[in-house]
Design a protein around this nucleic acid. Sequence first.
DNA 1: TTGCTCAGTGTAACATTATACCAATACAAA
DNA 2: TTTGTATTGGTATAATGTTACACTGAGCAA
Lengths: 156, 156
Amino acid sequence: MTTPLSATSSHDSSHVKLLAQAQQACQKKGARLTKTREQVFLLLAKRKGAVGAYDLLAELKELDAAAKPATIYRALDFLSKQGFVHKIESINAFIMCHHFGDCNHPVQLLICDECGHVEEIQSNNFDLALRSMADANGFTISHQIVEAHGHCKACQ
Amino acid sequence: MTTPLSATSSHDSSHVKLLAQAQQACQKKGARLTKTREQVFLLLAKRKGAVGAYDLLAELKELDAAAKPATIYRALDFLSKQGFVHKIESINAFIMCHHFGDCNHPVQLLICDECGHVEEIQSNNFDLALRSMADANGFTISHQIVEAHGHCKACQ
DNA sequence: TTGCTCAGTGTAACATTATACCAATACAAA
DNA sequence: TTTGTATTGGTATAATGTTACACTGAGCAA
């Protein structure tokens, strides 16, 4: 919160900062962060937690009445490929990644079944353990999904 | 098939053995392995790899023309709860578990995106690593999903 | 046996999630 | 400008999963 004078936009700065990061990352890679993609990015950035594609679509429709399922899925595809967003396979939902920019990192998610909170953690050790396990089976990992369900600190 | 003279049933015995295990496990727990559940169990046991609910339904319909989506999902629910079957969240498919009976173990899956083969591995170390990571976040895990995509030994 | 209860089932409808297809458009490189 | 590629628009539909409700049938107690 760096805007002491404005009460209404008190937390917008973090979205703007995230967006700036994303724009920079796209420019580096020659990826096109188009208007729709940017809108979806911001909607996700404003969300505290995970959101389903169709809920997101409903929000997007307020900005662009013509939006259709394909619109949102295309945007989510793009944002996922850039590493800005993660898909949570076990609940068919999407969440903004707050670590993007530096790497295409593997991710571990802790999903609270009580309050819906999703915590993103990132353990290289864990990643290594999984890879070595795969190695032992002659398997090469290209993408990993690690999602733990349970109860978060606040919901014990 | 209890016909030792028939070459076509050479590998049926393993299904029968699996089924016997399942029946025993159910009896212990007072769970009812009804006809439909048993049919679905056997269909899954015969499959080498993972199968979608609707593909499975199509197979089941050959045995029971009245089968409907609810039929298959109920059976899969039951079999999952008993630990006989795992759902693969990242591809919406189901696979027979070959380690059931002893425990309600956590599972790690290696999914080949080339040939579709799914390898089930089971590492307690891995489970512990995940749990300790969750602990550090004050999170209690009730169910975990670990699915690695890539290429298997044969598809390198 | 009779009647009670409850898990399991039959059936239809519905809800959610995701993609295919093809034409139109915008953008960047030559 | 021309050409090729990426992106979008729009429609339809595929694929996956759930709910509601009435009914059946097995187990059990009186």
